[in-house]
Simulated scan of single mutants.
Amino acid sequence: MTPEPDLREALLAAVPGLRAFAISLSGQVDKADDLVQDTLLRALSNLHRFERGTNLNAWLFTILRNLFHSEYRKRRREIEDPDGSYAGRLKVQPEQGSHLDFEDFRTALFQLPSDQREALLLVGASGFSYEEAASICHCAVGTIKSRVNRARIRLAALLNVDDVDDLGPDSMTRAALQG
């Protein structure tokens, strides 16, 4: 719809004031120009809502202000990430896989002889030194080292773990199986 010539002239006359207001709101000339353009498009598409005889500039400035605030609210939740590096850091391991891995680990752990399981849990999961674990179990340090080593080998076999890459993201499993 083409506006009447006098309304068209009034719209064009309002552009410098709209642009100045848009620059003061956005702080950037290119964004201000886009905002003025969007304002004029919105005004032209809603020209039937403008009441003749009222203040055209006030109506246009209101449209511009509302567009700016709508855009601001929308962009406030957005993060600029032109190269995708931020989005790349947001990935999360799926939870169901680690839950199933933990269940497999628990099942395998309880297949170990109790003395090996105890030594492995003290050293691998609880973080005690071999000396501290030996003191807790009332045995020699060499015995604890031997039990932990045999437990790790047996657990790796039960879980079909050939190397460190097979362990997955679970830190408890890694601690129990690594030396």
Rank of each mutant, 00 (worst) to 15 (best):
L109H: 01
V164S: 12
S135K: 08
P169V: 07
L67D: 06
R73G: 04
A156R: 13
L158G: 01
V141I: 13
C137Y: 00
R150W: 03
D165C: 11
S45R: 15
Q116G: 01
G142T: 05
L12Q: 14
L12M: 11
L64D: 09
D30K: 00
R77K: 15
L11M: 15
L35Q: 04
Q116F: 01
D101G: 00
G84M: 02
I144Q: 11
T62K: 15
L100A: 12
E103N: 08
A43H: 07
G88R: 14
S26W: 11
R49I: 05
R73V: 09
D30A: 09
R49C: 02
S171D: 11
R65C: 00
D33W: 01
D33I: 02
V123S: 07
Q96G: 08
F110L: 10
E118C: 10
S114K: 11
T62V: 01
P5R: 10
L44H: 03
L64K: 08
T173Q: 14
G179W: 06
D163A: 07
E132Q: 14
H99Q: 15
R174G: 09
K31A: 11
L159F: 10
E131L: 11
L122Y: 09
T2P: 02
A22L: 05
D38W: 03
S129Q: 06
R77E: 15
A125W: 04
T54G: 00
R117H: 07
R117W: 06
R106V: 09
L159A: 05
G127P: 08
H69S: 13
R106G: 02
L60D: 01
I63R: 05
R147Y: 07
R49V: 08
D38H: 06
R75K: 08
Y130M: 11
N46V: 00
Y72A: 15
L112D: 04
F21H: 12
R52D: 10
